[in-house]
Every structure is written in structure tokens, then in C-alpha cells.
């Protein structure tokens, strides 16, 4: 019940879905339709796992008064406040999900700017890395750097001014040698994914079962 049934569900579900692709019969199509209709409903509940584990981690930090525990409130309060504000709180008091509302304000004017800015910090770090770490230490590293410089110049308007061959060469690198390398990687990843799919379906790979209730 604890391990065999889930493994059986994976096996039957996996084979069924594979078969329905090759045999587009009315019955298999109807099973497939039920499945695509139901799967989002089932997986919606998976959010509960996220909420639970985030709450556990931060509640634990607060209880233990771990380093920077005060900031854990900044995770937990919006985590529970957002759904309340969006779904339950009266509209007359700033509730609801549409603008203007506290819910809308929180994601539009706090969440989006913070997340966008955090990612943009990488511009500064990559500049620093360009100065400190990108070295033409070997022939291969030099090729990498040269390809990068050509592509960088080829992608911006100023590259065109410096010489029209920059964009041309840049595009050529992208369309041929780059494509060759990426296709080889894609094939490798593709085979890897297929192997993993089969390993999971046939129960060879069982890590997803976790350690609970063996």
C-alpha cells in the first residue's frame, strides 16, 4: 500500500499515456481528456506542500531566534496576508485582487520591482567578473573569449558602426558552430530525459517516493 501501489500507479499511468499517443482511439482519447482536465486540479493542492514547508522553516527560525529571525516575519506575514486580502477582505477596505487594492499594490509595486532589481544586480557582477576572471589563459579560453566579444559587438548597434562584419560573423557563429554545440547538448539532454522517464515509469528510479512511511 505504501510503496507498491504508488509504483504501480506510476507504471500504469505512464504506460497508459504512452499508449494513448500511439493509439488515438476514442476510449484512449477520452481517458486523456479526463486526465488533462483533472491533473491541474490535483496539482493545485501541491501548493500546500510549499506553504507548509516555508511556514515550518521560518516558524522554526523565529522560535529558535536564529540569525536574522526577525526577517522571517517578512516571509510569513505576506504569505498568509496575500490570500486573505485578495480573496476574503472586503473590497471597501482595499480588498480584492484588481487595482486599486492592497493585494494589487503588493505584487505590482513591491514584488515586481524587488524581483526585477535583484536580477539586474547580475549586470554589475558580470562586469566585475569580466575584469577579474575572464582570462585568455589557453587557446580554448581565447576562442571562447573571442567568440563572446564578436557576438557581443555583433548584437549591438555600435558593432555595425565598428565594422559590418561584426554582426555577420556574430550571426554566423550563432547559426553554425553554436548550433552544432547546442544540438549535441540537446541530444544528450534528450536521451537523458527519455532514460529518466523510463526509469521512473518502470520503478528503477524511486527517489521521488521520499523516506516517509517506508
Amino acid at each position: 500500500m505504501k510503496r507498491t501501489v504508488p509504483l504501480l500507479i506510476v507504471l500504469v499511468g505512464g504506460i497508459l499515456m504512452m499508449v494513448q499517443y500511439f493509439i488515438p482511439h476514442q476510449v484512449s482519447q477520452s481517458i486523456f481528456n479526463y486526465y488533462t482536465d483533472w491533473a491541474p486540479i490535483v496539482s493545485s493542492f501541491a501548493l500546500i506542500l510549499g506553504i507548509g514547508s516555508l511556514t515550518r522553516v521560518h516558524a522554526h527560525k523565529i522560535r529558535r531566534k536564529a540569525d536574522n529571525w526577525q526577517y522571517s516575519w517578512a516571509v510569513l506575514i505576506p504569505l498568509y496576508l496575500m490570500p486573505v486580502l485578495g480573496l476574503i477582505w472586503p473590497k471597501s477596505m482595499g480588498g480584492g485582487m484588481d487595482a486599486p487594492s492592497i493585494f494589487h499594490f503588493m505584487y505590482m509595486y513591491i514584488q515586481i520591482p524587488i524581483q526585477a532589481t535583484m536580477f539586474s544586480l547580475l549586470a554589475f557582477y558580470i562586469a566585475s567578473a569580466a575584469f577579474r576572471a575572464f582570462r585568455a589563459k589557453s587557446a580554448l579560453a581565447t576562442v571562447l573569449l573571442l567568440a563572446a566579444v564578436v557576438v557581443m559587438l555583433g548584437q549591438v548597434p555600435i558593432g555595425e558602426l565598428l565594422g559590418s562584419w561584426f554582426p555577420k560573423l556574430g550571426l554566423w557563429i550563432l547559426r553554425y558552430p553554436n548550433l552544432a554545440a547546442k544540438r549535441a547538448i540537446m541530444l544528450g539532454v534528450g536521451f537523458g530525459m527519455l532514460a529518466t522517464n523510463l526509469k521512473i515509469i518502470f520503478g528503477v528510479e524511486r527517489n521521488w517516493l521520499g523516506g516517509v512511511g517506508k
Binding site: 549586470a123 558580470i126 562586469a127 569580466a130 575584469f131 577579474r132 576572471a133 575572464f134 582570462r135 585568455a136 573569449l145 566579444v149 557581443m152 559587438l153 548584437q155 549591438v156 548597434p157 555600435i158 558593432g159
Partner: peptide, 19 residues
């Protein structure tokens, strides 16, 4: 795109000076 041009030139300069 103007900023993109300027920043690329600066980063290429960083790479060259660093090397």
C-alpha cells in the same frame, strides 16, 4: 539599445584591461 552598446564596449574594455 544605446545603453546596451555603451555597456558592451565597457565590458569588452574590462576584459581587455583585465587580461
Amino acid at each position: 539599445m544605446d545603453v546596451q552598446s555603451a555597456a558592451h564596449i565597457l565590458i569588452i574594455l574590462f576584459i581587455i584591461i583585465g587580461n
